[in-house]
C-alpha cells in the first residue's frame, strides 16, 4: 500500500458511494447531483492515476456539460422536489437489476482482478504526458479523431432535427387548440359529430337555443 493507493482508495470510495446513491436515491435531481459527485471524484481518480489531461477533460465535459444537460433535462421534464416513488421500477425488477448488477461486477472482477493482479504503474515518471497524448491523437489516431468530429456534427444536427420536428407538430396542435370545435383532424369520428351538431344548431336560428 503506497500513499497513492491510499488516496485512490479514498477517492474511489467516494466515487463508488456517490454512484450507489445516484442509482438508489428517490430524489430525482439528487440522483443527478450524486452523479456529479461521482464523476467529479472519478476525475480525481484519473489525477491520482497520473492522467491529468483525462481528468481535466472529464471535469470539463462530464461535469461541466453533460451533468448540466442532465439537470436541464430533468427540470424540463418537471422533476419534483422531494422523494418520489415513481422513478423506480417494480420491486422484482429492481431485485433482478441488483442481481444482474452484482453479476456484472462479479464477472468483471473475476476477469480483471487476475489480469491486473500485481500490476503496478510507476507514476513518478508518467509514461503519458499531455504532449505525448497530443502527438498520439494527431499522429496515430488522427483518422478516428476526424471521424469523431463528423460524429459530433451528426449528433448536433440530429439533436436539432429531432427537437425541430416536434416543434412543428406542437405548432399544429396549438393551432388546433385555438378552435375547440375542430380539435384534431385525425379524430374524424368525433369531429364529424361535433360539426354536425354545430351545423344543426346554426341552421335553426329560430328555435331559441342559439339566441
Amino acid at each position: 500500500m503506497t500513499t497513492r493507493d491510499i488516496v485512490f482508495v479514498a477517492v474511489g470510495a467516494v466515487t463508488a458511494l456517490s454512484a450507489l446513491l445516484s442509482v438508489t436515491t428517490k430524489h430525482v435531481v439528487h440522483a443527478a447531483l450524486w452523479l456529479l459527485v461521482s464523476l467529479g471524484s472519478l476525475a480525481g481518480a484519473y489525477l491520482v492515476l497520473g492522467q491529468e489531461l483525462v481528468g481535466l477533460v472529464q471535469l470539463l465535459v462530464y461535469v461541466g456539460a453533460i451533468v448540466v444537460l442532465v439537470l436541464f433535462a430533468l427540470m424540463l421534464t418537471r422533476a419534483p422536489i422531494g422523494p418520489h416513488a415513481e422513478i423506480d421500477t417494480p420491486r422484482w425488477q429492481r431485485v433482478a437489476g441488483a442481481v444482474l448488477g452484482g453479476a456484472t461486477t462479479a464477472l468483471l472482477a473475476s476477469l480483471l482482478l487476475p489480469l491486473f493482479a500485481g500490476a503496478t504503474a510507476d507514476l513518478d515518471r508518467p509514461s503519458t504526458t499531455t504532449p505525448q497524448i497530443a502527438q498520439a491523437i494527431f499522429g496515430t489516431w488522427v483518422w478516428p479523431f476526424e471521424l469523431l468530429s463528423v460524429l459530433l456534427l451528426v449528433a448536433l444536427v440530429g439533436a436539432f432535427a429531432v427537437s425541430r420536428i416536434v416543434l412543428q407538430r406542437d405548432g399544429a396542435d396549438r393551432h388546433d387548440a385555438d378552435h375547440p370545435d375542430h380539435p384534431d383532424h385525425h379524430d374524424s369520428h368525433d369531429d364529424g359529430d361535433r360539426t354536425a351538431a354545430t351545423t344543426a344548431v346554426t341552421s335553426e336560428p329560430g328555435t331559441g337555443r342559439v339566441g
Binding site: 425488477q93 433482478a96 437489476g97 444482474l100 453479476a103 456484472t104 464477472l107 473475476s110 476477469l111
Partner: peptide, 18 residues
Amino acid sequence: LSLLSLLVGVVLVAVLGV
C-alpha cells in the same frame, strides 16, 4: 422490461463465455 431481458442475455452470454 426489454432492457432487463437484454441485460440478462448479455450477462448470461458473458458468463458462458468466461
